[in-house]
């Protein structure tokens, strides 16, 4: 199918790249998303809304920023119906040069087999919506 993206341009997507978010993604429209990860899900990749070309997020592996980060998978496994889930977080540039924000409070759970995903806030976790890291922390 053809997918329009303000950042990635117009491109053909394979069915294996289309994921469904049963509860949507907070702030975004629609429930279907393209995962554009040419280098695999362990590297930074894009989550693009199929409904709105301007809505895309950059996801990264949170363990690269915080090796102790290990959110409980229970709500996600129930919602997505799969136990082998990947957890990723939204990252974006901070105002301060050389730093990024990562939303450790609301990780994105990905079920590769069923091609489903969910972003679930962790109430009471003490994690931050805008945790600040040096870009070099990724290295």
């Amino acid at each position: 199918m053809r997918v329009e993206s303000s950042r990635l341009g117009s491109r053909d997507a394979e069915p294996s790249q289309i994921y469904t978010a049963p509860e949507g993604i907070p702030g975004f429209t629609g429930r279907r998303f393209l995962i554009e990860a040419p280098e695999g899900l362990s590297r930074p990749f894009w989550l693009q809304s199929l409904e709105d070309p301007s809505q895309s997020l950059l996801l990264i592996d949170p363990v690269r920023l915080d090796p102790t980060y290990a959110p409980a998978p229970n709500p996600a496994t129930t919602l997505l119906g799969e136990s082998a889930l990947l957890v990723r977080v939204v990252a974006w540039p901070a105002e301060e040069e050389g730093k990024l924000y990562a939303n450790l409070f609301s990780p994105v759970w990905i079920a590769p087999e069923g091609q489903r995903l969910a972003q679930l806030p962790m109430v009471g976790s003490g994690q931050l919506v805008k945790a600040v890291f040096e870009l070099s922390a990724l290295g």
């Binding site: 950042r7 907070p26 690269r64 939303n103 409070f105 806030p121 990724l138």
Partner: peptide, 30 residues
């Protein structure tokens, strides 16, 4: 307010993230 906080962060991230930032992260990521 919990849902709204995440929604606002997502919209901010969508607004501020561009290909240059993506390429920068790719370069840093081993």
């Amino acid at each position: 307010e919990i849902y709204e906080e995440t929604a606002e962060a997502n919209l901010e991230a969508a607004e501020r993230t561009d290909l240059a930032f993506f390429e920068r992260l790719r370069g840093l990521h081993p």
